[in-house]
Design a protein around this nucleic acid. Sequence first.
DNA 1: ATGTTC
Length: 471
Amino acid sequence: MSVGLVEETPYRWRIERQGAMRVPGVVFASRALLPDLSEEQALGQVVNVATLPGIVEASYAMPDMHWGYGFPIGGVAATDVDHDGVVSPGGVGFDISCGVRLLLADLHIDRLRPRLTALMDALDVTIPRGMRHGAVWRLRRPAELEEILTGGVRYAVAQGHGRDGDLDHCEDRGAVADADPAAVSARARQRGLEQVGSLGSGNHFLEVETVAEVYDEPIARSYGLWPGRVCVMIHTGSRGLGHQICTDFVRTMQAAMHRYGISVPDKQLACAPVSSPEGQAYLAAMAAAANYGRTNRQLLAEATRRAFERVTGDGELALLYDVSHNLAKLETHRSSRLCVHRKGATLALPPGHPDLPDDLRPVGQPVLVPGSMGVGSYVLAGVPDGPAFASACHGAGRRLSRHQAARTTKAARLRAELEAAGIAVRGASARGLTEETPCAYKDLDAVVDACAHAGLARIVARLTPVGVVKG
DNA sequence: ATGTTC
């Protein structure tokens, strides 16, 4: 893909406006990460996104960007709601509200080691995962699903699935206000009925980890991240419900676009004005899926607490934060009302932001960055004046397709390598394992380093895995 | 990511 990258700084590259682009493209990456990008059509997708009606500043891409549906994964795009700005389901992705939460045990890894096998076995039987394999929460009636879509984690906690303190440490305090279950199709609701509290498959996982290294002592102390502390990272989204909502609205908007005089260079960029009935309905359904996705992670966290309680006698795992990396939000930036699409890009609120709870406000929001299997994860922190609407990277970023990865990897060998590295693996199918081999991903250290140098976020701590549950 | 091609 020859779109012409101009080096602005060693960690920021510009694609000049050309053709129908309304704004330039801006890619945050080191020179070393660029070859991985240019092999794909991902840069062409950055260009395509720059043509969307109402887009402001630039079509941004994070250091972990790669090819996606319409928008690149790792893409950030904001449209001006008051100047014909559009919302696009492809700018959020199929797994609406996919995200991560991090739980902290009051336990040092040395004390867990003798019981690690027992803990992993407990999680093995506790955590539903894979395609269509049940869920923690058996809903008694469809009306309960409506409560989840409207009330999110707030409803889950009120029903006994968690504690009040969990709410403050969820993005949006666990529930987006403008969700409307009526905007969610019957088919989407049907698919969501039996998946509340389930991991799913692909890159979703539950990992028992320990704090391996601290880079920013004061912020790490505020977050409660001390070396050797045991923590649990849960990475999942809105399962079939979010997928169906995306499918429904891509179709709706593809049919409606001509009425608004919108044309896009790729059908997968289907969109509608934020203020249109279609745009409003999508945002209401998307918000419902966001509430569902967070509730899903909440239920898995409760199941994890019960497993810890049984094995270690202490199930009081504290929630550091729960944050999505696939969402569009209505936000005010420099007194403009914007619809900010983050697709494979994590919200990264700066210190002092009013949406943060009291204990996190002084230092900024925890930005949870899951790595590929066996590699571990990072905790970053939001910084003042971030250059992409308070967004940061969301992971290592895929380098090889699932097919390529599965073709070049032997499951038994990979499993043996993980076990040899002291990482207990539970529940992963051979196919799921090979598709998620770390070889299929970029170097997480390089991605996070680029993120920090580009001024998107500050590096706080690195976590290393001791056990992984996969679909 | 996904009842992995309505």
